[in-house]
């Protein structure tokens, strides 16, 4: 990601942001709300088109909206704050949709793999339920399974636990931690400092649409370099 800028009207959400993520790396993006973390995440698979700068995946710049971009997005899994499971489809159908429609897998093969993934995230018993019948934590795990079903090169998590009740946060973080330990490339926008500390290779601190500090979690949490990071950490660690 080179010199990426993005504005919403007068608001500059991203200003000349540079970031590169290695294969197999887990990067956690933190920062106060409105700092541009989510926008950064959404720019990576071009759910938000950028105003200037380049986003490259495997050295290839993101194409314009169209078939090529769709193909590329298939390789980038995304997990949303509000789950965004397809409301009119069962959990199983949510997970098999991408593989059958985009990857061209047969229905039975997609189904078999989907069941494996659902078992992995611990909700294979809910396969035939509709999203509205599931708890938030279950929905988010289904959404992770849906993203994993595409066998993505990169997984994006946009505040995956922010909309969850506290008792459900752990079940989602457990799944994410497991993915991290398996060596998935992940970019996670999150307020979960515990997760950042334990799973991330690097922590990216953003404020005001800029990347202020990039550091390994140990150093970031124990010895932040910038004033703004110190300020931020003091606020969230106060309680």
């Amino acid at each position: 990601m080179e010199k990426v800028s993005k504005s919403f009207g007068p608001v500059k959400a991203l200003q000349e942001v540079d970031l590169s993520v290695e294969r197999g790396e887990v990067v956690v993006v933190v920062g106060p709300s409105g700092s541009g973390k989510s926008t950064l995440c959404r720019c990576i698979n071009r759910l938000e088109p950028v105003d200037s700068g380049t986003v490259m995946i495997d050295g290839v710049p993101l194409p314009e909206e169209g078939k090529a971009l769709a193909k590329l997005r298939a390789d980038v899994g995304m997990v949303f704050q509000s789950f965004n499971l397809f409301a009119h489809k069962t959990v199983l159908e949510n997970v098999t949709l991408g593989p059958t429609k985009v990857r061209g897998l047969s229905r039975s093969e997609a189904r078999q793999r989907a069941m494996e993934l659902l078992r992995r995230v611990g909700i294979d018993d809910k396969a035939d339920r509709y999203p509205a019948e599931l708890s938030g934590g279950q929905q988010q795990r289904a959404a992770i399974a849906r993203a994993l079903a595409m066998e993505p090169k990169l997984m994006l998590f946009d505040e995956p636990t922010s909309a969850l009740d506290p008792e459900m946060i752990k079940e989602v973080l457990d799944v994410m931690t497991e993915l991290a330990s398996e060596g998935k490339t992940m970019v996670v926008v999150s307020h979960e400092m515990g997760f950042a500390r334990s799973a991330a290779q690097r922590v990216v601190f953003m404020d005001d649409g800029r990347i202020v500090e990039v550091a390994p979690p140990d150093r970031f949490f124990s010895d932040p370099q910038s004033e703004r990071a110190k300020d931020f950490l003091s606020k969230i660690l106060a309680h």
Binding site: L47, A70, K71, G77, N84, G98, R146, A147
Partner: peptide, 17 residues
């Protein structure tokens, strides 16, 4: 909801799909 279309596109469906 907007998120439905975003989720659909993020798994690689084209806009018409």
């Amino acid at each position: 909801a907007r998120g439905q279309a975003e989720a659909a596109r993020s798994i690689g469906l084209t806009f018409p799909q």
